[in-house]
Computed example of a mutant assay.
Amino acid sequence: MSLQRRDLLLTSAAVVFTPAVAAPRPLRIPHVSARAELERSYPAQLLEQALAAAGMPVQLEPTTELIPQNRALQELGRKRRLDVVWTMTSVERERQAWPVRVPIFKGLFGWRLLLATTDVAARMREVRSPGELRQFSMVQGLEWPDTSILQANGMNVVISPSYDAMFKQVRLGRADAFPRSVEEIWWEVERYGQGLTVVPDICLHYPAAIYYFVAPEENELAAAIELGLTRLRANGAFDRLFETHHGQDLARAKLATRRVIELRNPLLPPQTPLNKSELWHRP
Score class of each variant (00 low, 15 high):
1 M>N: 11
2 S>D: 11
9 L>W: 12
14 A>P: 02
17 F>Y: 15
17 F>V: 03
18 T>D: 12
23 A>D: 13
24 P>S: 07
33 S>P: 00
38 L>T: 04
42 Y>R: 06
47 L>W: 02
53 A>S: 13
58 V>R: 00
59 Q>V: 04
60 L>T: 03
62 P>E: 00
63 T>V: 02
70 N>W: 09
72 A>V: 00
82 L>E: 02
92 E>F: 08
94 E>M: 11
103 P>D: 07
111 W>F: 13
112 R>K: 14
114 L>Y: 02
114 L>N: 02
131 G>V: 12
133 L>Y: 04
135 Q>P: 09
137 S>M: 07
141 G>P: 03
144 W>G: 04
146 D>C: 03
148 S>W: 15
151 Q>E: 14
152 A>V: 06
155 M>T: 00
159 I>M: 12
160 S>T: 05
163 Y>G: 01
165 A>S: 13
166 M>S: 11
172 L>S: 13
174 R>H: 10
176 D>P: 00
181 S>R: 03
191 R>A: 08
193 G>V: 05
193 G>L: 07
196 L>M: 04
198 V>D: 08
202 I>A: 04
212 Y>D: 08
212 Y>F: 15
215 A>C: 07
219 N>C: 12
222 A>P: 04
223 A>Y: 04
225 I>R: 02
226 E>Q: 15
226 E>F: 07
236 G>Y: 11
245 H>K: 15
258 R>L: 10
261 I>Y: 01
264 R>N: 12
266 P>Q: 06
266 P>L: 02
270 P>S: 14
279 L>P: 00
279 L>M: 07
282 R>F: 10
282 R>H: 14
